[in-house]
Design a binder for these strands. Structure first.
Lengths: 252, 252
DNA sequence: GCGAAACGAACATACTCAGTGTTTGAATGA
DNA sequence: TCATTCAAACACTGAGTATGTTCGTTTCGC
């Protein structure tokens, strides 16, 4: 069991019980207690948990978005397939606004090197795209959320408002026919709205775990999405409802 | 002779003769030709030179700013000392605009972790600063120059205009009492002006090789600089002239 | 206050990966 | 055509990281 698997184990136990013990993890993973302690210390510095004597307790509150370091390890393969499909929807020479988040970062990796103009809403996205001379990167301003490295606030919205895009690629935390597109917090909602306002078309990229989910920040009714790209794990009836709202649903 | 020294050697020869040979470099550096080829390939991908059969020719035109990959290896120690002094001038809680460039990047490293609000004008600066939870990062929007990773254009200027700073930390390519503060290109000039316009005080950070130099883009007369931080390698008479213009000159 | 458990600093070991050199066959240009 | 240059493939090396072990210190329950 390697480092990544150990982290998965810690997360799983925290999700079940809300707390874990060092000895218990050492036993289960087959590693020394010292190594487990080092794992837990790292996760604490990433804000995932809080160390207590003998183990650790969960810090991720229910219903809130898990931290970036955890999300980036979830459904990686599905996200890459979705990202490839989204990138294929972007014509050469197009201008697009690219949301923050793990799925959007994969889209950035796919787009890097293609002759398009991109406004990424995250520093990681900007970094990936700026390495290529072919791609024009027009980074949005804004306040950087620590840990997440995404951009929000009035500066971000002003940057988006100053440009017109062919396509907005938005990630979302929840998407259901009844409750529309939702995000985890309000600053993100404002940014997503600004992206959509400045773009002719909106493409939503969401892995199937997001379908049917409803989170706190309401962005818009599903009907405002032009195209949804998701993986094939979503229940067919939920997708049918979304299609009925006029969305072009693509599964990969 | 390690990798960094070999690159220096390549640059030196290119500066003298405009071209270098693989065999010649292998001889001079004491390394195999294969290693030299790999060095040259890397430098080609960084835009420093163009490979030709048997060697390489220079791509950096006279009078233009050398690429970032070269500048970052020049006067490293002086830049770090200057950066530490500049950071010391920034009071806790202050808001500052931070220029792009290698010296400013060192300032960012010094500032990371301190409770200040920073608007960096480069992606690297943003990256360094955003890692710390203590520091508020308000990244400027704008177009990213490939290779350089700095931000310019109307979006950057608009971001700067939307905020008021206590201090602007500007790097410069040239600084002389007679010809004022100069930069290498016009988009940079506009950004530096916008930084200064939005800030109460301007601190210029420039290693001594920049003192007395004049480059193409005129930014402002030296008198508009409040404080200049430089290393002790600058000629005293040049510094005296700058002081006479009302600049508080600090040497480290 | 006492003792057991947990902790973390320090050192030793194992592993990974980037950088380098050598070989060899293909590509290039005089 | 032929010598030179190139680049792919493989082996070697050293730096840096991850892990385990030891041991003295800290913490908590009693």
């Amino acid at each position: 069991m390697d480092s990544a698997e150990r982290v998965d184990l810690v997360i799983a136990r925290l999700k079940e019980a809300g707390e874990v013990g060092v000895a218990e993890l050492a036993e289960a993973s087959g590693h020394s207690e010292m190594t487990i302690r080092r794992d837990l210390d790292r996760l604490e510095s990433q804000g995932v948990l809080r160390r207590v004597r003998g183990g650790a307790v969960s810090l991720v509150p229910r219903g809130q978005e898990p931290p970036y370091v955890l999300r980036e390890r979830q459904a990686v393969e599905a996200k890459q397939r979705i990202a490839a499909r989204v990138a294929a929807l972007v014509p050469t020479g197009a201008a697009l606004a690219l949301d923050s988040g793990t799925t959007a970062l994969e889209v950035a990796r796919e787009l890097a090197g293609r002759p398009v103009t991109v406004m990424p809403l995250s520093l990681q996205g900007a970094d990936v795209l700026a390495r290529s001379a072919e791609t024009t990167v027009l980074v949005a301003g804004g306040e950087v959320r620590p840990g997440e490295l995404n951009l929000h606030g009035p500066l971000a919205e002003a940057s988006l408002a100053a440009v017109r895009f062919d396509v907005a690629v938005v990630g979302c935390c929840g998407l259901s026919a009844g409750d529309g597109v939702t995000a985890h917090d309000l600053p993100d909602v404002a940014v997503k709205r600004a992206m959509m306002r400045s773009s002719q078309r909106t493409v939503a990229a969401a892995d199937s775990t997001k379908i049917g989910l409803v989170t706190m920040g309401y962005v818009c009714p599903v009907g405002e999405i032009d195209t949804l790209v998701t993986d094939d794990g979503a229940p067919e009836d939920a997708l049918a409802e979304i299609r009925a709202a006029g969305v072009d649903v693509v599964t990969v």
